[in-house]
Each structure stands twice: as structure tokens, then as C-alpha cells.
Design a protein around this nucleic acid. Structure first.
Length: 467
RNA sequence: UCCUCAGUAGCUCAAUGGCAGAGCACUCGGCUGUUAACCGAGGGGUUACUGGUUCGAGUCCAGUCUGGGGAGCCA
């Protein structure tokens, strides 16, 4: 097959003067086709760029003019033509076609139309929705954001650690897990108590998909000092909300010789860096979101980037929120977790910018968070941002083995299940801290998309794994 | 898992318990610069599924399935 030496639409938009009045070959898909008696216009998208380019075709130039007028949305074509400036038209330039060849026909029952579709409908055709404007923008931003995250950490000499996806640890403690097994469930071996015998299983023990890479990351932080994970995470919770999926990605940095303040400084730097990076590298997409998805988007993101994040302790926050208790569905009281309505009130009305809430009661936080001197609170932090509430949760970890053991016992857990995690404290353990950022939550915040199912290519949610 | 709303043409939606409709899309025709092009004509339906009430059900009732939103859980 002959190579197609094509110019991309992105190249043309970025440096049009390089291509004016030259003959180019473009390859792409028809987004719209309007024809008159002797000429017509095709909106072509070649995948390289968010925007389309207009192709003008004329009867006297094309021997297959009649065929081209019949090509509807979705047809894949190869276009030869001259790029010309169109200073008086809506678009800055267009291609005057010399030839148009069909690469792949698209019949008229193609489900995508020129007009707007509901996101609900597009979820039922998840294999075709990347061809729409919104999803083209969402998934290009997803890619750029992933790169920005790596770039941020790599520039600061953090080591990227691939923590396991299959875990033998049943004590990650963040919700229901998916079991991984090769056992034949029609023929299970059971012991005399009727329990399944996992010694016959592939790994010789019960294994699951990971719900967090944090415990493994702590081990690597004790060797490399600053590390981060960025990978898939699985939760078998029956959560039916626009913010939860069974398979999602998380970013979890972990730093040795660092306390809660170092942790918060890192989180603030990271958020500002990755948001700025996407705004700079996907301007067309971000403008589209601001116009069609969420009209306050750019103002909100710029406010995050340009403000100094606020800090408040949980105890202080509770006092602030109590003054407004009449307006909350759930009344605030010291010792209870903050609801989304409380978080949003703090960040949107009290501070009007991102705010770290720190030092939560130990009862509502995980066992590994470092106990404060008051004996009642732990060195935890949540970053709340206007628009959604919590976007990051982190903590300084408990590095003192005797106190960690005490917490493990208080919560009815078994020390031996955490033997290697406890070793990290035994052998040269240092103060250390880290946090978790839900990758999809960050994409949602950046794009204004309100459903997590619309920022994952093929989302997995309860009762849904069609693709 | 709980609460709540919805399911009618390919899509987005109408239709008081009384003949199943529109716009867009699609097919055909027209139009010499369109921009969600425009103008004319045409085809297109197991009203999610099962049962019930009724002379008569898209509409009322019960159950099931699927989807949206809220809650819980959390990222």
C-alpha cells in the first residue's frame, strides 16, 4: 500500500503561513457536508486537532463530484488540494479540493449526527463518541493532563513507582475489592470450616485488585526519598453516582523527610502546575469547555492558579461552619466528617479560593495517619476547591512504631497482617507524608464535565462494562 | 444499597383515558460561497418488558429491566 504523506490540520492551524497556496494532502473524517448544484463544502476533522478544516469542492474540478456530494457524516476521505486564505469568511482558510477519494465508506445509519447528542445517548455508543467535539476535547485534555503530572514530578526528581495492580494485601483498607482468582468456582476446595482453600489458587493465597498504591509507595519512599504512583485503581463499591467508577486512576506522591506542611506545599504547587500546563497546551479545548460545558470554568481555574491557598484546622473550620448551621441539611459538630455542602461552603463562601483543612479527629481518618500531640487529632489534610469540594486527601504518616501498633490494635486489626509495613518503621524509618489525587476528578474539574463516565474512554460502573 | 425522576421514530422531544405527532437525521429533487446552510417531497413506530384495571391504555395500577439525579461510601 502506498504511503500517504499527509499534512495535519494541527500543523496548518499552528503555522498557516507555511502552507498557504501550496498543494497538500489531508486524511480525515467528514463532520458535515453541504452541497449546491455545482459546488459544496466539507467540514473535515483529521484527529490531529480539535478544530475542523473546510474543504471546498467543485463540479468542474472533480470527476466524482456527484459521489462526493452524497458523502455524509463519518466517511473517511483523502483530500488533495490547495490551502487558500479566506479573509472575509467565518473560517480563516480552507482547502480548494483537486481530488477527493473515499478511504472508508460510512453508511447512512451511522448514529452520530451533526446536531448535539445527549451524553446519556453517547455513553451507549462509547466506541463512536470520541468522534464528537466534546469527547475529542475531553480525551485530548486527559492525555495532556497525564503528561503534565509526569512532567511535574519528574522535573522535581520524583521516582515513578509501578505499585502492584494485583495485591495480596487485604488490608489496604479503602473499600470493597475485586477478587483475582484462577480457581474453578464450580469445583471449590473447602476446609472443614467450609472456607475456601486459597492455597490451591494461582498465588497460593487470596488476591485482589488494588484499591491504593500508598502502602507500597511508602516502601519506595524509604529508599528513593520522593516517589509517586500513577496507575489504575479498583473499587468494588456499589456506588451509583456521577463521581464514582469501579476502575479509575490515582496519583499518589510520597515523600520521606517531609511533614504535613511539605505535603501541602507539594499539593499546591502540583495543582497550579498541571492546571496551567493544560490551559497553555489545550487552549482551543479549554475555550470550548468554557463556552459550551461550563461558562464559569476559566475564571474558576485562573482563580485557583493565581491565589495563595488558605489553611484552616478542622477544629477552626467546625467553629466557622457552626455559625451557618441553620442553612445546612446536616448540622456540623466536632467529631463528625464534613459533608460536601460544608466543604463547598468553606471554599466558596468563607475563603473564595482553595483551602486546606487539617488536623481531623483520628476517629474519622485512616489508621496510618500521624497522631498529633493532643492525642485526639491526626496530621491529615484535605484540599477543598470551589465548585466540587475535596479534590486531594493526604496526611503525614505515623512513623513511630509503638503508636502505629497502638492504632492498629485500637481498630481491631492484626499487627501480623502489616508486618512489612511495620518493618518500614523498624528499619530507618523517617517522618514522611503523601497524598492522593483522583485523576478523573482532576479532569472533571478542568473540563467542567459533571459525570465521571464522560471522562473515561470506556468507563466501568456497577452493572455496566459493555465495551 | 436507599430515595427520586424518566423510558414514545436513528436522535431530541410532544400527544386531557379516545385516529401515534414535530424538529433534526435519512432518501429523492432544487439552489453559484455555505457555516447546525436553505427550499420542496418521501420513507420511517411491538410507545422498555410482563401482567392488571377499562368499552377503550403511550397515558391509570403492580412488578421487572435500563438510564439520569440525590444520599451513603469515597478518589
Amino acid at each position: 500500500m502506498k504511503d500517504i504523506n499527509t499534512t495535519t490540520v494541527k500543523q496548518i492551524y499552528r503555522q498557516p503561513q507555511e502552507y498557504f497556496n501550496k498543494r497538500l494532502t489531508l486524511a480525515g473524517w467528514i463532520r458535515s457536508n453541504r452541497d449546491s448544484k455545482a459546488f459544496g463544502f466539507i467540514e473535515l476533522n483529521d484527529g490531529s486537532f480539535f478544530k475542523n478544516i473546510q474543504i471546498v469542492f467543485e463540479e468542474e474540478k472533480l470527476d466524482n463530484f456527484k459521489e462526493v456530494t452524497k458523502l455524509g457524516v463519518g466517511n473517511a476521505i483523502i483530500v488533495d488540494g490547495i490551502l487558500v486564505e479566506t479573509p472575509n469568511a467565518k473560517q480563516p482558510f480552507e482547502i480548494k479540493a483537486e481530488s477527493i477519494q473515499v478511504e472508508g465508506y460510512c453508511p447512512s445509519e451511522y448514529p452520530l449526527q451533526k446536531k448535539r447528542h445527549s451524553f446519556e445517548f453517547l455513553r451507549t455508543i462509547a466506541h463512536l463518541r470520541p468522534r464528537t467535539n466534546t469527547f475529542s476535547a475531553v480525551f485530548r485534555v486527559r492525555s495532556i493532563l497525564a503528561y503534565a503530572i509526569h512532567k511535574f514530578f519528574q522535573e522535581r526528581d520524583f521516582v515513578y513507582v509501578h505499585t502492584p495492580i494485583i495485591t495480596g494485601s487485604d488490608c489496604e483498607g479503602a473499600g470493597e475489592m475485586f477478587r483475582v482468582t484462577t480457581l474453578d468456582w464450580n469445583n471449590l476446595t473447602r476446609n472443614d470450616k467450609g472456607e475456601i482453600d486459597f492455597s490451591d489458587d494461582f498465588f497460593g493465597r487470596e488476591t485482589n485488585l488494588t484499591v491504593s498504591g500508598q502502602l507500597s509507595a511508602e516502601a519506595y519512599a524509604m529508599a528513593f526519598r520522593n516517589v509517586y504512583t500513577f496507575g489504575p485503581t479498583f473499587r468494588a463499591e456499589n456506588s451509583n453516582t456521577p463521581r464514582h467508577a469501579a476502575e479509575f486512576w490515582m496519583i499518589e506522591p510520597e515523600m520521606a523527610f517531609a511533614d504535613l506542611y511539605d505535603d501541602m506545599a507539594l499539593a499546591e504547587d502540583m495543582i497550579k502546575y498541571i492546571f496551567s500546563y493544560v490551559l497553555e497546551h489545550a487552549p482551543e479545548e479549554m475555550e470550548f469547555f468554557n463556552k459550551f460545558i461550563d461558562q464559569g470554568l476559566l475564571d474558576r481555574l485562573n482563580n485557583v492558579i493565581n491565589s495563595e491557598f488558605a489553611h484552616v484546622t478542622y477544629t477552626e473550620a467546625v467553629e466557622l461552619l457552626k455559625k451557618n448551621n441553620d442553612n445546612f441539611d446536616y448540622k456540623v459538630e466536632w467529631g463528625t466528617d464534613l459533608q460536601t455542602e460544608h466543604e463547598r461552603y468553606l471554599t466558596e463562601h468563607v475563603y473564595k479560593k482553595p483551602v486546606f483543612v487539617t488536623d481531623y479527629p483520628k476517629e474519622i481518618k485512616a489508621f496510618y495517619m500521624r497522631l498529633n500531640d493532643d492525642g485526639k487529632t491526626v496530621a491529615a489534610m484535605d484540599l477543598l476547591v470551589p465548585g466540587i469540594g475535596e479534590i486531594i486527601g493526604g496526611s503525614q504518616r505515623e512513623e513511630r512504631l509503638e503508636i502505629l501498633d497502638q492504632r492498629i490494635r485500637e481498630l481491631g486489626m492484626k499487627e501480623e497482617d502489616y508486618w512489612w509495613y511495620r518493618d518500614l518503621r523498624k528499619y530507618g524509618g523517617t517522618r514522611h507524608a503523601g497524598f492522593g489525587l483522583g485523576f478523573e476528578r482532576a479532569i472533571m474539574y478542568l473540563t467542567g464535565m459533571s459525570n465521571i463516565r464522560d471522562v473515561i474512554p470506556f468507563p466501568r460502573t456497577p452493572k455496566s462494562a459493555e465495551f
